[in-house]
Computed example of a mutant assay.
Amino acid sequence: MDQNPEGLSESAARAARDLAVVVGRLRRRIREVAGDDDLTPSQVSALTLVGKGGAATASTLASAEGVRPQSMAATLAALEQRGLIRRGPDPDDRRRQLITLTDAGRERIEGDRQARQQWLARALEERYTEDERQAVLDGLALLERLTRP
């Protein structure tokens, strides 16, 4: 079996490269479909994080995203200006502010999620045979192992 310079099999190295390319392209395509054009990827990510957690501080969000607090502050200011998030005092510590979604923010996340899922399901239905869709499902089951510690 051929080994690449990193000591990995050629098939593992190629699969890693090809998977990264395909996932990146798919993410960009799904983002286009969702209509996220008016938000930056950082804004979409922060909005999604706030939606998952219910309420968060700016520093918690910055840490989760791996960005500086100043960068997160700019991202949150843009989301607040669009009416997608609101800031309010933390009931446990009045010095901190909690960021939560507005109704418009919740609608945006849910609408984007539905648009992405509908596009992807339709694309899979139209572009693949039943056997190919089963192969995709089998591949996804294998890829799921990568998500485990």
Rank of each mutant, 00 (worst) to 15 (best):
D2H: 01
L8Q: 06
S11F: 03
A12Q: 08
A13M: 09
R14T: 05
A16W: 07
R17V: 08
L19K: 05
V23Q: 02
R25G: 15
R29E: 01
E32M: 03
V33H: 02
A34P: 01
A34S: 12
D38K: 10
D38A: 15
D38F: 14
L39H: 15
P41E: 13
Q43K: 04
V44S: 12
S45K: 09
S45R: 11
L47H: 13
T48H: 13
T48W: 14
V50E: 03
G51W: 13
K52S: 04
K52F: 11
T57L: 02
A58E: 10
A58M: 07
S59T: 11
S59N: 13
L61E: 02
L61S: 05
A62S: 10
A62Y: 15
S63W: 11
A64M: 09
G66D: 09
R68P: 00
R68M: 04
P69H: 08
S71A: 11
A73Q: 13
L76F: 13
L76R: 14
A77G: 13
A78P: 02
E80G: 14
Q81G: 09
R82V: 04
G88S: 11
G88Q: 14
G88N: 06
D90Y: 14
D92L: 06
D92E: 08
D92Y: 00
R95A: 04
R95E: 01
L98K: 07
T100V: 10
T100M: 08
T102Q: 05
T102L: 12
E107K: 15
R108F: 09
I109D: 09
R113F: 08
Q114A: 12
Q114W: 15
Q114Y: 14
A115H: 11
R116H: 06
Q117Y: 07
Q118W: 14
A121I: 03
R122S: 11
R122F: 01
E125P: 08
E125I: 00
E126I: 00
Y128A: 01
T129W: 14
Q134Y: 05
A135T: 04
A135Y: 03
L137G: 05
D138G: 01
G139V: 00
G139W: 03
L143G: 05
R145I: 01
